[in-house]
Design a protein around this nucleic acid. Structure first.
Length: 223
DNA sequence: GGGACCACGCATCGCT
DNA sequence: AGCGATGCGTG
DNA sequence: GTCCC
């Protein structure tokens, strides 16, 4: 519950943060399964209702095997994880993490860019980038912006208006994602569009998509 | 030991 | 040009 | 890295 989350047990927090750092490095290097393994272990620790004082306490829990036990033990013993210090201080890893945080740049492209000598987002402006990555870079700061709850409401109202008027009055926009869970802010707005009669109109499968995109485009939502 | 670990759209590649 | 395979990135 | 056959 939020109570536990709020005053997270200090040592658990250290463990979680440390493992998350290492996980992030793996992710930005394209080592997806190892990344996922870390995430699983992290989620398990996040769910604990007690503070870890000995690695044995989490032995056997989901996603925690020998490797994680050893890392947790080291963190408990020394207050930190040497592996974490090593990987995060490496300049190449730092660049990889930075680049892969750009929408449209994954581990492979990031690696190529680093090999070409690029290190900062400023550098990337001069790089040859695929359209998607170019777009991600141009909107990098904006993409990190959070959307206040009230603003999401405005977007939804606008959306309903658009769907009703320009597409099909029967279309029902359903909110999903963080906003539906009443989060104070959202990173994006997830909307599911349903049409009660669509089951009997299989042939019109793609029609709505085009209409919806056009409506959003005319409204200035999409370029 | 050794393989699975999410599914899918889009771009690109190699082959015919 | 057409098609499956592969690589890459995303939610 | 962890899990499972």
């Amino acid at each position: 519950n939020s109570f536990c989350t709020l005053l997270a047990f200090a040592m658990n927090g250290t463990i979680i943060d440390t493992l998350a750092k290492v996980a992030e490095v793996y992710r930005s290097n394209g080592v997806v399964y190892r990344y996922k393994a870390y995430r699983t272990a992290i989620d398990t620790i996040k769910g604990l209702d007690f503070e870890i004082t000995s690695a044995d306490q989490v032995k056997g829990l989901k996603g925690i095997g020998k490797g994680m036990i050893d890392k947790i033990a080291e963190i408990l013993r020394t207050g930190a994880l040497q592996q974490e210090k090593d990987v995060t201080s490496d300049p190449v890893n730092q660049a990889l993490r930075l680049f892969t945080s750009v929408h449209g740049i994954g581990p492979v492209l990031a690696r190529q860019l680093v090999e070409q000598g690029y290190r900062t987002l400023e550098d990337l402006k001069a790089a040859h980038l695929p359209p998607a990555a170019r777009m991600g870079l141009a909107h990098y700061e904006d993409g990190k912006e959070r959307i206040p709850f009230a603003e999401v409401e405005d977007h939804l109202a606008h959306m309903r208006q658009l769907m009703h008027g320009a597409v099909d009055p029967a279309l029902i926009p359903v909110v999903c994602g963080s906003h539906r869970r009443l989060g104070p802010t959202s990173g994006d707005v997830d909307v599911l569009l349903t049409q009660p009669l669509s089951h009997s109109q299989a042939a019109s499968k793609y029609v709505y998509l085009r209409l919806v995109v056009k409506a959003l485009r005319d409204a200035g939502y999409v370029p």
